[in-house]
């Protein structure tokens, strides 16, 4: 019901080639459709509302798309207000297997008097098959722990990562824990956002709870990574596989980060063989396909 109602919004289809490099290119029609619209309106205080657009991709050939993100160029209410946020950080790519492939963008809250919004932008599709250098294999990486992995593929993509031993990971995790300096920074940011002191207190308490949650036991089998934030933004996925190319089954992963580094632990169902190969799937210019779209009358709830 909801779905069909919001789907009335016009989505501009696009013809593009999604197939793997080196194969015959087939033209594919991919379009963006609104799945759900959430107008989260908040009076004042510590929280800021916004208009959340949940978007689905439709069309042929999407099975080769590993992840996607939406970048908006314009967002306008029918009452004339520009809703595009001023400081927009590029969103992360979202895996097609997460949330049934639904993408999300957030713009400023439209006026209460508005009844529709118009948005336009591009959806960026990550198609690793379009670029052979998007997948980097790193044989022997497990034998050289605690030093940045040496790899031509990583170097050419300007990506750095280090496989850590358990001991080094624990040491790094300890350094990454919430300390007085980090708490002071949270308070500073809260103050900059105009929060009251007691509101900042609540945020700090919550930060402590999150910090504690990230301190669980290490998995019996797994591997550990330290990645500079700039590199992490280019890494879509990382895994271990056997020398024959069979992917080792993962038991889940978790990560924590500060401004400089991301620490990631990946549990494995069984101990990896000594000659296991570390594999990273990277975002490269050639592997990304941009599809423009426009939705003219997205009805507000």
């Amino acid at each position: 019901m909801v779905r069909s109602a919001v789907r009335r919004a016009v989505a501009l289809g696009a013809l593009l080639a999604l197939c793997a490099a080196g194969t015959t290119e087939a033209q594919t029609n991919v379009k963006v459709v609104a799945k759900e619209v959430v107008d989260d309106r908040i009076s004042e205080g510590m929280m800021k509302g916004g208009l959340v657009l949940l978007l689905d991709l439709e069309g042929d050939g999407l099975d080769v798309v590993q992840s996607a993100r939406v970048r908006l160029k314009s967002a306008m209410a029918d009452t004339g207000e520009d809703l595009l946020p001023k400081e927009e950080k590029a969103p992360d790519f979202s895996d097609r297997n997460v949330n049934a492939g639904t993408l999300q963008v957030v713009v400023n809250s439209p006026p209460r008097a508005a009844s529709t919004v118009q948005v336009a932008g591009t959806v960026e599709l990550f198609v690793p098959g379009r670029d052979a250098s998007a997948v980097v294999r790193m044989p022997g990486a497990l034998a050289k722990l605690d030093k940045p992995v040496v790899s031509k593929g990583l170097k050419s993509a300007k990506v750095e990562l280090t496989l850590l031993s358990k001991a080094k990971y624990l040491e790094e995790r300890k350094k990454n824990r919430l300390d007085e300096a980090k708490i002071a920074k949270i308070r500073e940011e809260a103050k900059a956002r105009g929060m009251k002191e007691e509101e900042a207190d609540a945020i700090v308490e919550m930060a402590k709870a999150f910090d504690e949650m990230g301190e669980g036991d290490l998995p019996e089998h797994g591997f550990y990574l330290k990645v500079p934030v700039a590199s992490e933004e280019k890494i879509q996925e990382v895994w271990l596989e056997t020398a024959k190319g069979e992917r080792l089954e993962s038991g889940g992963s978790s990560s924590r980060s500060d401004e400089a580094f991301v620490l990631k632990q990946v549990a494995l169902k069984a101990a990896p063989p000594k000659d296991a190969v570390l594999v990273a799937r990277l975002l490269t210019d050639k592997s990304i396909v941009s599809v423009p779209f426009e939705m003219k009358e997205v009805r507000l709830p």
Binding site: A202, I203, F210, S254, R256, D258
Partner: peptide
């Protein structure tokens, strides 16, 4: 690779969800 960043924005989001 989506990291769980201990940022204020995340905490704010969690604060809203945790009510």
């Amino acid at each position: 690779m989506n990291a769980t960043r201990l940022s204020l924005a995340l905490l704010l989001g969690a604060a809203l969800a945790a009510s």
